[in-house]
């Protein structure tokens, strides 16, 4: 098992390095940083000076290793926008807003998704089941940018129950978290329903019934534990969906997180910030996957023995 974890860790590092390479190439090859940094009135001499300052006259691989070395020391450069803020500090300052939103969304999604999935499975074929399945289908099909706008229109503009956008107390979380979570909610619901149905027709559930356990014990103690294993397997994917979803959702709701920062910096071609955001997000991806691996160990005894 330790070997397995070490392998995953190595893979994670390779992923990070690869990502940094991709970003480096994108920013250096396609987006000419000099043109971005210079004002329109700059002279050719200014240009040469800047090229030397940035080390752009050196070979590409040297530039990459300089970039990598600086990054390892926490130096990602400065934002090219007027504020000239430190890129890493900027990204880190936006992190709490994103993490809290993703956390709220993931929590409500998990609780509700498992509840709905179990409900649909034990009422299979009834109206309740049909309703849950329709909801899941809708959740999987509605693009989040549209859903967010519609939720704002109905609950903020029309009914006036919730703020339209921005960052603040709990009320501000409701609509963005709902928008961010709906796709994942639908996915978890479907997953739990399917695996619960499988568990309910399994032999070990039959044996639990033979023992004379109540239907509740059968569902909660025997079927549920097993049907959550696939949910754990997909947790990494779910978290990933949320982080990438954050780009759209934070933009729609004017949420001051790294998703919106990513969008804004991409639109402004602010490459130091882009590099930092993308690397930080990738790091989170990888971290999430490692946590999932550990969770997996905790829930499934068969994994503990396996290499």
């Amino acid at each position: 098992m330790l070997k397995h974890l070490a392998g995953r860790l190595a893979e994670a590092l390779v992923a990070l390095v690869l990502m940094s390479l991709v970003i480096f190439l994108l920013s250096r090859v396609i987006g000419d940083p000099v043109a971005l940094l210079l004002s329109d009135s700059a002279t050719e001499a200014d240009r040469q000076l800047l090229i030397q300052q940035l080390g752009l006259d050196r070979p590409m691989w040297q530039q990459y290793f300089t970039f990598l070395g600086n990054a390892l020391q926490g130096d990602f450069g400065q934002s090219v926008t007027a504020g000239r803020e430190d890129a890493l500090e900027l990204v880190l300052s936006r992190l709490p807003a994103s993490l809290s939103l993703a956390g709220v969304a993931l929590a409500f999604t998990l609780v509700l998704g498992i509840l709905l999935g179990v409900l649909a499975a034990i009422t299979r074929g009834t109206l309740a089941d049909l309703a849950v399945r329709m909801l899941a289908l809708l959740g999987q099909s509605a693009p989040s940018f549209w859903l967010g706008i519609m939720l704002i229109y109905v609950f903020a503009v029309h009914l006036g129950w919730l703020p339209t956008s921005g960052f603040g107390g709990p009320a501000y979380y409701v609509l963005p978290a709902l928008t961010l979570g709906l796709f994942t909610l639908a996915a978890i619901t479907r997953l739990v329903r399917a695996s619960m149905l499988e568990a309910l027709s399994s032999e070990y559930v039959k044996l639990a019934r033979i023992k004379g356990l109540s239907e509740w014990s059968v569902v909660l103690r025997h079927a549920l534990g097993n049907s959550l294993i696939p949910v754990v397997t997909f947790m990494g994917t779910f978290f990933a969906t949320m982080i990438t979803g954050a780009v759209v959702v934070e933009t729609v709701f004017a949420w001051p997180g790294i998703g919106r920062l990513a969008y804004e910096s991409i639109m402004a071609r602010d490459f130091p910030v882009i590099q930092t955001v993308v690397l930080v997000i990738t790091a989170f991806f990888i971290l999430a996957n490692l946590i999932v691996d550990l969770l997996y160990l905790a829930i499934d005894p068969r994994m503990r023995a396996a290499g």
């Binding site: 399994s202 032999e203 070990y204 039959k206 044996l207 639990a208 025997h222 534990g225 294993i229 499934d300």
Partner: peptide, 13 residues
């Protein structure tokens, strides 16, 4: 039951 291999819950002792 017919299938003793599948009759025990894999995640419980």
């Amino acid at each position: 039951l017919q299938d003793p291999m599948a009759s025990l819950n894999p995640v419980q002792s």
